[in-house]
Amino acid sequence: MPAVTYVSADGAREQVELAVGTTLKDGALENGIDGIVAECGGNAMCATCHVYVDEAWIERLPERSEVEDELLESTASERTAASRLSCQIKVSDELEGLVVQLPEEQE
C-alpha cells in the first residue's frame, strides 16, 4: 500500500499507508488526521478538504478538473500553485511517497 505523508499546519508529520483507490481526504479522516473538514462528504461542493501538495509532486498528480479548479477559488486559506482538493485525488502506486501539507484554515 502506498505511503502518504500529511504535514499539519504546525509542521507535525504523519505517514500512513493507504489502499489504492482511497482518496487523500478519506485517508486523512480514516486515520484520525486533523485539518481536513470535507463538509460535503467528498462531493466537490465545499472546498474544505484543501491541501498543498509538496512541490516535487505538483506535476506528477492527475490534472485538476474544471470543477476542482473553480472550487479552489473558494478556499479559506490562500490558493497557490500547489493547491488541490483532497477528495479529488485517489491514491495509486505512482503516488508512493506523496507528501501533502494541510492549510491553516478550511472554513
Binding site: E39, C40, G41, C46
Partner: peptide, 23 residues
C-alpha cells in the same frame, strides 16, 4: 458525532447543489 458521509444531501453528480447555502 462526525456526521460527514451521510447521504441526506445525496451524493455524487446529483448531490444537493444548495447544500452550502442550507448549511
Amino acid at each position: 458525532r462526525r456526521a460527514s458521509g451521510h447521504v441526506g444531501f445525496g451524493s455524487g453528480i446529483h448531490a444537493c447543489v444548495g447544500q452550502m447555502l442550507a448549511r
